[in-house]
Computed example of a mutant assay.
Amino acid sequence: MGNVVVVGSINMDIINRVERHPEPGETIHCLDTSYSPGGKGANQAVSSSLAGSSVTMIGAVGNDAFGEVLIKALHNYGVNSSAISIEEGTSGLAFITVDEAGENTIVLSHGANGKVHSDQLSINMLKGAYAVLLQNEIPASVNEAVMRMCREEGVLVYYNPAPAHQLNEYLYDLIDTIILNETEAALISGLQVTDVASAELSAAHFINKGIKNVIITLGSKGALFKSKDSREFVPAFSVKAVDTTAAGDTFIGAFAASQASGGSVKESLVFAAAASAITVTRVGAQQSIPRKEEIEQLLNSSKL
């Protein structure tokens, strides 16, 4: 089984639960406020670790009150945190508002995530690695440098372009697997994504640009995998969503862990869909991510 390396963000999530999201200019009361370790990078690292992978996290926290808490949380989830740097200033923060339907809005404050640098990832860390997971909550120059290092060392790049923005054309050839939701796929490809058929058109755009594998997650509609020579689709598990925070990160981390352990694409998609389904039934980011045993229990009790 290959290791998984995550280069990305580490945040403290400040979560406000509300009956509904406010209109522009409107002030409303929240039902409660909680603090939860998060960040796309850290969430994906925790997901891969709980799903059975050996995981190393590369990132940065501030020397504020949150920094030590964030590193300790990763350590407690079995993630190797020895390469995380402590920078002057604040840790990354995410201000999350969740309504009664479980839908969320998120405002990010980069903090120390903006100080992550590619020198933190050494060639030694890539030895034995199956894949490196990347997102868009650290400097784009770091992502590019890591992609090039992975290409030289023969390590797969799993890229989650979130928050979404247009990609430089020359990056496409450096990405082995791109994983996006409907909104991200639509923004980057320029093609509206509302269902499986439109997701296939968007996926074809990325493949034509040079990316080997594309996964588009469609929320309650399921997830689509597409490459030049193959296609897989898995429906979503039917659950009552309480909080969608970290659902996408859970899917990505679980998929990578399953692939690293030798699972087929179809097996890994189903495994990731089950992990994500469990996550949305719980509140918070990392604390909502399931362990491998829980995922397997859902798989064993389901007909999917």
Score class of each variant (00 low, 15 high):
residue 238 S to H: 13
residue 134 L to F: 09
residue 123 I to R: 12
residue 118 S to Q: 15
residue 181 N to F: 10
residue 149 M to W: 05
residue 220 S to I: 07
residue 296 E to D: 11
residue 174 L to M: 01
residue 228 K to N: 14
residue 15 I to A: 03
residue 17 R to N: 07
residue 200 E to Y: 14
residue 30 C to Y: 06
residue 264 S to H: 05
residue 166 Q to L: 11
residue 48 S to C: 05
residue 8 G to S: 14
residue 160 N to Y: 06
residue 275 A to N: 06
residue 249 D to S: 03
residue 16 N to D: 08
residue 78 G to R: 03
residue 202 S to K: 00
residue 172 Y to F: 07
residue 162 A to H: 09
residue 54 S to K: 05
residue 53 S to F: 02
residue 175 I to E: 02
residue 215 I to K: 01
residue 47 S to K: 04
residue 280 V to I: 08
residue 94 A to C: 12
residue 85 S to V: 05
residue 168 N to Q: 13
residue 59 G to W: 01
residue 99 D to E: 11
residue 66 F to K: 02
residue 17 R to H: 13
residue 261 S to V: 13
residue 55 V to E: 02
residue 101 A to H: 15
residue 248 G to N: 10
residue 16 N to A: 08
residue 76 N to D: 10
residue 26 E to P: 06
residue 299 L to Q: 00
residue 276 S to K: 02
residue 90 T to C: 08
residue 259 Q to W: 10
residue 41 G to R: 00
residue 221 K to I: 00
residue 23 E to W: 09
residue 188 I to F: 05
residue 239 V to R: 04
residue 82 S to H: 06
residue 246 A to F: 08
residue 229 D to M: 12
residue 84 I to F: 01
residue 130 Y to V: 00
residue 297 Q to R: 13
residue 116 V to P: 06
residue 179 I to K: 04
residue 267 E to H: 10
residue 97 T to H: 04
residue 128 G to T: 01
residue 212 K to F: 08
residue 174 L to N: 01
residue 194 T to S: 12
residue 121 L to K: 04
residue 206 F to G: 02
residue 49 S to N: 07
residue 122 S to E: 11
residue 214 V to F: 09
residue 47 S to D: 12
residue 48 S to L: 00
residue 266 K to D: 06
residue 81 S to A: 00
residue 19 E to F: 04
residue 209 K to T: 04
residue 26 E to K: 15
residue 20 R to V: 14
residue 279 T to N: 06
residue 161 P to S: 07
residue 144 E to R: 08
residue 42 A to T: 03
residue 222 G to H: 15
residue 204 A to I: 08
residue 235 P to Y: 13
residue 37 P to F: 00
residue 126 L to V: 07
residue 248 G to A: 10
residue 185 A to E: 05
residue 123 I to V: 14
residue 56 T to H: 14
residue 55 V to T: 09
residue 58 I to W: 12
residue 187 L to M: 11
residue 173 D to F: 03
residue 169 E to W: 12
residue 25 G to H: 13
residue 184 E to D: 00
residue 182 E to K: 12
residue 8 G to Y: 07
residue 42 A to P: 01
residue 160 N to G: 00
residue 43 N to V: 02
